[in-house]
Computed example of a mutant assay.
Amino acid sequence: MTVDELLAETRHTLADTEAPATEARLLLAAALDRDRAWLYAHGGDPVPDAAAQQARTWARRRAAGEPLAYLLGTREFWSLPLTVGPGVLVPRPDTETLVEAALECIPEGEVRSVADLGTGSGAIALALARERPRATITATDRSPRALERARDNARRLGLAQRIRFLQGDWFGALGKTRFHVLVSNPPYVARGDPHLAALRHEPAEALIAGEDGLTDLRILAAGAPAHLLPGGWLLVEHGADQGAAVRALLEGAGFTAVSSLRDLGGRERVCRGRLPL
């Protein structure tokens, strides 16, 4: 079977995924250990049996709903190549909105202390460390598996010396330390949300937050003032329909300058508020 023939077969297998043609090329390129450009120039080349079998296996797993990032083992976030895998939430492009908002609260060239709560793969902490080299970054997660993944990403990207990794649930690992900025992409999906079926391969504890999706956001809003310096910022990602509820949580916790930011799709995605001076 040639490259082009196997691509056609793989696209058919992936017909119900978001981008069958793109995903077929990504899977076949990975199975052949080539880049996608090579596929265009070698469409008539035969595919070794082992590579063809690997591509078919991956395609079946992807068609069954397994995240593409788990199959490939990598996901790009903020132009950083991150390793990902089962047990760790796959970084989403929408979360780059959270990074952009946090950078606005961390003046370039100034020393600031930042904590990323529930770091997962380390995506947010690593992006902030890359963009703000004078900031001191702490990344926490209750999952040892996630923390190890985040540490591995930091080592590969040469940022391991810039980030302190601590195990603990939300503020549990911080002790009495206060920060200039707290940032988090917490679970925010309601327990009965129908979208969970499509996310069944990712860790439920990183997705589900009680009956209304706000359980962890409530914890973050209520606990943040005790871990922020005067004038410090709390920034959280949330669901597209939760903006008003999260603004109310931050205002109720005493934050000022509370506002929402929209993602690339125009949906409210991030809420931030400032602790009074």
Rank of each mutant, 00 (worst) to 15 (best):
Ile137His: 06
Arg274Lys: 14
His227Asp: 04
Arg267Met: 11
Thr256Trp: 13
Pro46Ser: 12
Pro48Val: 05
His12Tyr: 11
Ala244Ile: 06
Asp212Leu: 07
Asp116Gly: 11
Ala173Thr: 01
Leu72Phe: 05
Glu100Ile: 08
Leu72Gly: 04
Gly172Ser: 10
Glu131Met: 04
Asp241Val: 13
Pro93Leu: 06
Pro187Tyr: 12
Arg164Trp: 05
Leu196Ala: 02
Asp4Gln: 14
Ala222Met: 11
Ile106Gly: 13
Gly223Ile: 02
Leu28Gln: 04
Ala51Leu: 03
Leu26Cys: 08
Val111Phe: 07
Cys271Pro: 07
Gly192Ser: 07
Ala221Asp: 01
Leu28Ser: 01
Cys271Thr: 15
Ala21Cys: 07
Ala59Phe: 05
Leu217Ala: 01
Ala15Lys: 15
Val84Pro: 11
Thr138Cys: 11
Leu26Ser: 05
Val189Met: 13
Leu68Ala: 13
Glu205Lys: 06
Ser184Lys: 07
Pro46Ile: 12
Thr13Ala: 15
Val114Tyr: 01
Arg60Ala: 12
Trp38Cys: 00
His195Glu: 04
Gly273Val: 14
Leu261Val: 14
Asp212Lys: 10
Asp49Ala: 15
Ala125Met: 02
Pro91Gly: 06
Gly85Arg: 09
Asp263Ser: 04
Gly172Val: 03
Pro186Glu: 07
Arg164Glu: 12
Ala204Phe: 04
Arg142Thr: 12
Thr97Trp: 04
Leu229Pro: 12
Leu275Trp: 12
Ala52Thr: 00
Val270Ala: 10
Glu23Ser: 08
Val114Gly: 09
Leu6Gly: 10
Ala64Asn: 07
Asp49Leu: 10
Arg61Ser: 08
Val258Gly: 11
Arg155Phe: 09
Gly65Ser: 10
Glu76Cys: 08
Trp233Lys: 12
Arg269Trp: 08
His238Gly: 02
Ala190Glu: 02
Leu72Arg: 09
Leu166Ile: 03
Pro133Phe: 00
Thr10Ser: 12
Pro203Trp: 00
Val183Glu: 08
Ala222Cys: 11
Ala63Leu: 05
Leu159Glu: 03
Arg112Phe: 07
Ala139Pro: 04
Glu237Cys: 08
Gly120Asp: 14
Pro91Asn: 06
Ala127Gly: 09
Arg25Val: 08
Arg75Asn: 12
Ala244Tyr: 01
Ala173Tyr: 00
Ile163Gln: 04
Ala190Val: 01
Ala135Met: 01
Arg162Ile: 00
Arg151Gly: 14
Arg62Ser: 02
Tyr188Val: 13
Glu202Trp: 09
Arg75Gly: 10
Leu275Glu: 06
Leu217Asp: 05
Glu100Ser: 08
Leu28Phe: 01
Ala63Met: 02
Gln53Phe: 03
Ile219Arg: 13
Ala37Phe: 12
Leu264His: 13
Asp212Gln: 06
Thr74Gln: 01
Ala245Val: 06
Thr97Phe: 00
